[in-house]
């Protein structure tokens, strides 16, 4: 049991959850306001994605110059699969779901600690969706996973 790696996971998770709430991503009305390109457009959440991607775009290449991570023996990175129908259909369906309620997976889970009455509907439905897609469409091929 790699205790340091466990603490790293806890710390990173706490940082992630804090960021989600501070940024406003856990407010589904704000998310829908961001996706609303009519006169009501609320551009605020652009800064969330912008801020996060600036950090990863600068830091990821530097991190990946290392031979291995600090606490484990190798990086677990997605392979370089081509863009396929499964990716586009999946992302398209995800966007529809995201727009319908204003929740994507991270904020939806955090909502368990904020708005339990919505989380108790959304999260089981999302888990069912994971299970259905995993069971009927097969797991992703080794080396093509975008995350592990």
């Amino acid at each position: 049991m790699n205790l340091k790696a466990i603490f790293a996971s806890l710390f990173c998770g706490a940082l992630f959850g804090t960021g989600l709430v501070v940024s406003g991503m856990t407010d589904p009305l704000k998310v829908q306001g961001f996706l609303d390109i009519t006169a009501n457009w609320q551009p605020a959440l652009m800064w969330v994605m912008g801020g996060a991607v600036v950090v990863t775009a600068i830091c990821f290449p530097l991190v990946l110059k290392r031979q291995q991570p600090v606490l484990t023996y190798r990086f677990h990175l997605p392979g370089m699969a081509p863009v396929d129908r499964r990716l586009l259909i999946g992302s398209g369906l995800f966007g529809i779901g995201w727009g319908l309620s204003g929740y994507c997976p991270g904020p939806a889970l955090v909502t368990a600690a904020i708005n339990a009455s919505e989380a108790m509907i959304f999260i089981p439905a999302m888990l069912a969706g994971f299970w259905v897609a995993g069971s009927f469409c097969g797991e992703c091929q080794p080396g093509t996973a975008d995350q592990e």
Partner: peptide, 24 residues
Amino acid sequence: YALVGGLLIGLSATLLLLLNGRIA
């Protein structure tokens, strides 16, 4: 708030990759 939150999320993702080698 959105910018600070976004930076925290980016930092979390960076640390998880640096320390544990995982994509957040």
